[in-house]
Simulated scan of single mutants.
Amino acid sequence: MFPRKVIIYITLLIANVLFPNALWAQDKADNGPLVLQRGTNISHWLSQSRLRGKDRAAFFTEKDVTFIKDHGFDHIRLPVDEEQLWSEDYTKNKEAFELLHQAMQWCYLHHLNAVVDLHILRSHYFDAREKPLWTQPEAQERFLQCWRELSDELKRYPVSMLAYELLNEPVADSADQWNELLARGVALIRAKEPKRVIVIGSNRWQSTSTFPQLKVPENDPNIILSFHFYNPFVLTHHMAKWTKIRDYDGPVHYPGATITQKEMNALPATISNLLYGGEKVYNRDTMQAQLQPAIQLSKRLKLPLYCGEWGCLNTVPRKDRLNWYKDLRKVLEQNNIAWSNWDYKSNSFGIIGDDGEADKTLLKTLTK
């Protein structure tokens, strides 16, 4: 006799070929609500990556899924980019979609939930200077078409297992621009999948501070409100090469002032001017206060909260870094906020380094 999970896996593969549009939700458990608690981001695989072919396939495997599940996580957040899934003529990349389905099948087999996050569009990258998504109707239609096709591909998976995140870190000139496009995106998904959970965040990098400007579609219980948390930025992105603060290589601290006033006074103005707020005291109380706009909206609308990204670079002194993770995790969980750390595999934020070895202390801080 074959093991049960082997039989299930073979069945899923056959069903995927013979019945590509059929839902796999046969068990009563598959028809229940989606539950998210602890997750990790599978970044730099189907998003922000130049890997292709065998290298891309080898980056994330079933072994990773079992590792994540066995260490106490209940879901993954999977960023995907338009340029990974579709060519410039909008033809689907068969290989990339096969990898996406393979990941979903592994999650289903190992009872791991997933959030598929449309991370970067050709018309919108959160750090780009020009973002045609907010000014060109054809770019907005392309965004909607991406979701038509993603829904057609992914609707076969149980609503109890998979959620859609419409757009990662929208950065529009005004909240109204995002709210209007968000409403169109939700309406599109609802016409195709009435019960699918949709994850939405506020304008300008999904900051908690912009939650008061977020317009959430009314009378829709299948929505999760999402924010990202990298505060204080001077700490979490210490010496990050892609930021304006990359040239500051002095000390940073947590808890307390990230950079003491004495340390700040010793810096040339060209550096200190970039470190605005670096002398501010950060601790659990600060975190709790900064989460309030999201918590208040969540309570008013009776919708769950999700911190879809949070992380601190390993350029930060180890003790301070681990203290930050410990405190933020405690604050999130005390407020019943589900989370997904950034990220699973990388040499900067990751639980797993590029050498394939796990940071056991960080892993313990996140899961024990």
Rank of each mutant, 00 (worst) to 15 (best):
M1R: 12
Y9W: 15
T11L: 15
A15E: 09
F19R: 05
A25E: 12
D27A: 14
G32D: 15
L34A: 06
T40M: 06
T40N: 06
I42M: 11
I42D: 01
S43I: 06
H44C: 12
H44P: 00
R52P: 00
G53Q: 06
R56K: 05
T61Y: 14
K63Y: 00
K63M: 00
V65P: 02
F73Y: 15
D74L: 13
E82V: 03
T91W: 02
A96T: 09
A96I: 10
L100F: 12
Q102L: 10
Q102S: 14
W106G: 07
Y108P: 02
Y108S: 08
L109S: 07
N113Y: 05
A114Y: 08
V115E: 06
V116W: 05
L121S: 01
R122Y: 11
S123M: 10
Y125L: 08
Y125N: 08
F126N: 09
F126C: 08
A128M: 01
E130N: 04
W134A: 02
P137F: 03
R148Y: 05
E149N: 00
D152H: 05
E153R: 13
E153V: 15
E153A: 15
P158Q: 13
P158M: 13
M161T: 08
A163S: 10
L167T: 08
E169M: 02
A172K: 01
D173V: 00
D173Y: 00
S174E: 12
Q177C: 05
N179E: 02
L181G: 03
A183V: 02
V186M: 02
A191Q: 15
K195Q: 07
V197Y: 09
V197N: 10
I198M: 10
S202C: 07
N203H: 02
S209T: 14
F211C: 02
F211S: 01
Q213T: 04
P217G: 07
E218L: 13
N219I: 04
N222V: 14
Y230K: 01
N231V: 08
N231T: 06
F233D: 10
F233L: 11
M239N: 10
W242T: 12
K244F: 12
R246F: 12
D249E: 13
G250S: 07
P251R: 09
T258A: 12
K262G: 14
K262M: 09
E263Q: 14
N265P: 02
L274A: 00
G278D: 09
E279T: 15
E279N: 07
K280I: 09
V281F: 07
N283V: 06
T286V: 13
A289F: 14
A289M: 13
A294P: 01
S298T: 06
K299C: 01
R300W: 03
L301Q: 15
G311F: 05
R318G: 04
K319Q: 14
K319F: 04
D320M: 11
Y325C: 13
K326N: 09
D327N: 15
E333C: 04
N335R: 05
N335M: 08
N336F: 03
S340C: 08
K345A: 14
K345F: 15
N347Y: 14
F349T: 03
I352P: 00
K364N: 11
T367Q: 11
